[in-house]
Design a protein around this nucleic acid. Structure first.
Length: 256
DNA sequence: GCTCATGTTCCCCT
DNA sequence: CAGGGGAACATGAG
């Protein structure tokens, strides 16, 4: 699930359920997902801490805990769950026992990761990312992509340029802007760059309330997994290819 | 058995 | 250095 809109949904979920509570214990951490320290140091450092409100940078959920900061990346299958007595789920990779219940980090495929960092460690993590997409203005965006020769979709998914877009949001935005995802970024003219920027913002803004990329009637996301997929606007058969190692869907009749 | 999956990183080429 | 291609990571679903 996790692209920017999903992680923004997790942030709201975290702040609704977990923020403000004290950590009674950190249990069941999957050591293969822990990117810093050991299960023991992790648990000791978090126990007794009060969780503050979380923020987000790209696809990272950043959860300060009055000293150390818990950072979660959800990979392709991660999510949060709030539990009050339910049995442990097979894919729970971390259980934080809090005053009023349990916050669980659940992740089937175990991509992504869990960090517990100090301020320097946090700066190191976020420093590898470009600005968050919700903080990026059009002029910055145009500057970032203007000289790149890679496929525009590859540029949109490069988290070091700007952070938060993923496979679905990139395809959806290019579909909305009617731009062929295979074109070199530097081949877009100024009008196309503007159109793409506003399309991305629209896709993100429209998705945020849902906490996911919604399969709206005129959205590519609705049709991309059908086979053969049909363009939700013109009915043409969608084309499927790979860009940057990711399955890419687009309408060959409308996207140029 | 096979393919594919909303992510990232690393390694090898050109 | 920029960028492409593929593999790896781990666990399913169809």
């Amino acid at each position: 699930m996790p692209e920017l809109p999903d992680v923004e949904g997790f942030r709201r979920f975290y702040n609704r359920h977990a923020a403000g509570q004290r950590v009674r214990a950190a249990n069941g951490i999957d050591p293969t997902m822990l990117r810093t320290g050991t299960a023991q140091t992790f648990g000791r450092a978090l126990k007794g801490r009060r969780l503050e409100g979380a923020r987000r940078h790209g696809k990272l959920l950043i959860c300060p805990a009055g000293g150390p900061t818990l950072v979660l990346h959800f990979g392709m299958t991660g999510m949060l769950a709030w539990c009050e007595g339910e049995a442990r789920h097979r894919h729970d990779r971390l259980v934080l026992e809090l005053s009023e219940g349990e916050l669980r980090y659940r992740n089937m495929r175990k991509f992504g990761g869990i960090w517990l960092v100090d301020d320097d460690g946090l700066a190191e993590l976020t420093g590898r990312l470009g600005p968050d997409w919700l903080e990026l203005d059009r002029v910055q965006f145009e500057r970032l992509i203007a000289r790149r020769r890679l496929a525009i979709k590859g540029a949109l998914m490069d988290q070091t340029l700007a952070a938060g877009l993923g496979n679905l949001t990139a395809d959806e935005s290019l579909f909305r802007a009617r731009i062929d995802p295979r074109r070199p970024a530097c081949a877009l003219d100024s009008g196309e760059r503007r159109r793409l920027y506003s399309s991305i913002r629209r896709v993100l803004d429209d998705s945020l309330p849902y906490g996911l990329v919604p399969a709206k009637p005129k959205w590519l996301t609705r049709a991309r997994d059908e086979r053969p997929g049909r363009c939700p606007r013109c009915g043409a058969t969608l084309e499927r290819t790979r860009i940057g190692g990711r399955t890419t869907a687009f309408c060959p009749r409308e996207q140029h």
